[in-house]
Design a protein around this nucleic acid. Structure first.
Lengths: 224, 224
DNA sequence: TTCCAACCTTACAGCAGCCTTACAGGCCTC
DNA sequence: GAGGCCTGTAAGGCTGCTGTAAGGTTGGAA
């Protein structure tokens, strides 16, 4: 699950990146309104963490644009102490929550989780395909209710497929969810991950299968 | 178990630190509202001991903020004789107990223990994984009901893992619970403690095992 | 059938994360 | 002060993950 962090303070951004990663989120971080726009229009993020005091413009403009085009991505604002006006206008414009600096990393994580748990959002009950299930809270895979060890990449791919149960996921989408904008992929990495994941799952007795839809992408479903 | 002490009198603070340490608690101490905020937002403490007469603001504000964000950390107020109003407003704001200065160290310890023993708090029945159990009251580890000598650090790590039985504990969380804010860790200390703990446990016939979840943290569970 | 693109499979090097060991300093006890 | 234990640091080794590349296989179009 990939989050977008817009924050111009390098130190804070570093801490956030680390904390988010430990909590199992991947993130891209940019420090300007301009980059935020580009990122949002390129990759599909699970949530946006938006600092309001940016050098090249008003973060609220980003929020306003998102909502104008009916993008309901959860947005959590970071505001400096006392920026009451910002908070109020932020919430009016459709922000979902806000935190006043300084804040506890754990609190941010709790707020993110709360947002992702909203109906239609990304954290919820466990996803299930045949005897394979994925616990979105703990971010782990279970076969017949036994937890299975998977690498970080394998877990990410599986999560994406399970969230899109019944729909085809393109290779491009998988690339975006794994690498975001930060890195390039110059290889068949996704194919390799899918291969490794298939191997793990079949070795461990999963009855769910990852099908290839040639020219389109991958699809997870029960057997056959 | 780590406590946060907010007290601006150096002498008293020194005595408290010493007394708490002797009683088996670790503590961080700060002397201003500002530092209190930062500490609370960075580390997860078992309880807060809060003096109300601080130089840079009202300690009650700290308490108010905690409760507003539904943080139920036990808070024990220290008030000067006659500060009746403070006590009343403190309790109204959600403080759990208070002591009037001067007070006996032993009384403070008793109050702390009482708070930690509340349902849902940190002192309680023993935690058990296979033939390994941890008595949170006495703060010691038992294998097949035989007490085992462990060093302070080893005990802290084990306690944290046992309290999070079934969940993964990140290295970062372990660092926070051991070092708090007072020290830095510039090494692989946690890895070393885990290693020492594993050695102790296996030598003494524990059937509980500490598993490594690469890139995530550690997890204690039965065997396998 | 032939050919090409898409995908699968395997192998491998680099690397980060973790384990293990050794050691020096601090503290406590005797 | 001698000895012992605990603590934190450092260094080196090991393991498994990751991304890349290369070659094989499959499916579909012409």
């Amino acid at each position: 699950m990939r989050l977008l962090v817009i924050e111009d303070n390098d130190e804070l951004a570093g801490l956030l990146a680390q904390g988010l990663r430990t909590a199992g989120y991947e993130s891209d971080r940019f420090s300007s309104v301009e980059d935020a726009r580009i990122a949002l229009s390129t990759v599909s993020y699970a949530a946006l963490i938006l600092d309001l005091g940016l050098p090249d413009g008003d973060g609220l403009d980003v929020l306003r644009e998102l909502r104008r085009r009916s993008d309901s991505i959860p947005v959590i604002l970071l505001t400096a102490r006392g920026g009451l006006d910002d908070r109020v206008s932020g919430l009016k414009l459709g922000a979902d929550d806000y935190l006043v600096k300084p804040f506890a990393l754990e609190e941010l994580l709790a707020r993110i989780e709360a947002q992702l748990r909203r109906p239609g959002q990304l954290l919820g009950a466990s996803l299930k395909v045949a005897n394979l299930s994925f616990d979105t809270r703990e971010r782990r895979c279970l076969i017949d209710d036994t937890p299975q060890p998977l690498s970080v990449r394998e877990t990410t791919v599986l999560e994406h497929l399970m969230r899109s149960k019944g729909r085809v996921v393109s290779k491009r989408q998988l690339e975006d969810s794994i690498f975001g904008l930060s890195e390039d992929v110059g290889s068949n990495a996704i194919e390799v991950y899918v291969h490794r994941l298939r191997k793990q799952l079949s070795e461990k007795g999963s009855k769910a299968q990852i099908h290839t839809i040639r020219g389109v992408g991958y699809l997870i479903s029960e057997d056959q």
